[in-house]
Amino acid sequence: MKRNMKQFVVGGLAALLALGGLAAAHATEPKKPARVPVPAISVNKDKAEKCVEPTDVMRRDHMKFIQHQRDETMHKGIRTSKHSLKNCVECHADPKTGSVLGKDGFCATCHQYAAVTIDCFSCHTDKTEKRVSANEPASLERLVRLSAPAAGAKP
């Protein structure tokens, strides 16, 4: 019994080490041509102004800026636009779709490439203010039904 346990533990540790080694080897591997092509990120070119921070800073730290701003806005009511998600979307949304998601969406392409899930847009809209307002009639229709007095229980 005891022996079995020991073997089990030793085996588990060995497997872990092997995995760790593999990961390390992978990290130091010389650069092979990437299997997944680097996405062509289309920044809104027609917007003349620059991003709120230099590109390399944004690449590395955009999530920190957004998260910091999120807490400031949510809890303190600070509504500066410089690092707000809304501001990101306003500038970077695809002029055609009005969205930062989708096949060529500014946020989606890069996050897909980097295999990092974004949680922002399960709650936040991925569209610019203008696009959202354009959707008004549809949302209104649903609302009228919503505000109608409830007839009976759950469908």
Binding site: V132, E136, S139, L140, R142, L143, R145, L146, S147, A150, A151, A153, K154, P155
Partner: peptide, 15 residues
């Protein structure tokens, strides 16, 4: 509900 974009699915118990 218009102002805040609160929409439902015509399911009163869960909307």
């Amino acid at each position: 509900h218009v102002e805040n974009g609160v929409t439902g699915h015509n399911r009163p118990a869960t909307d």
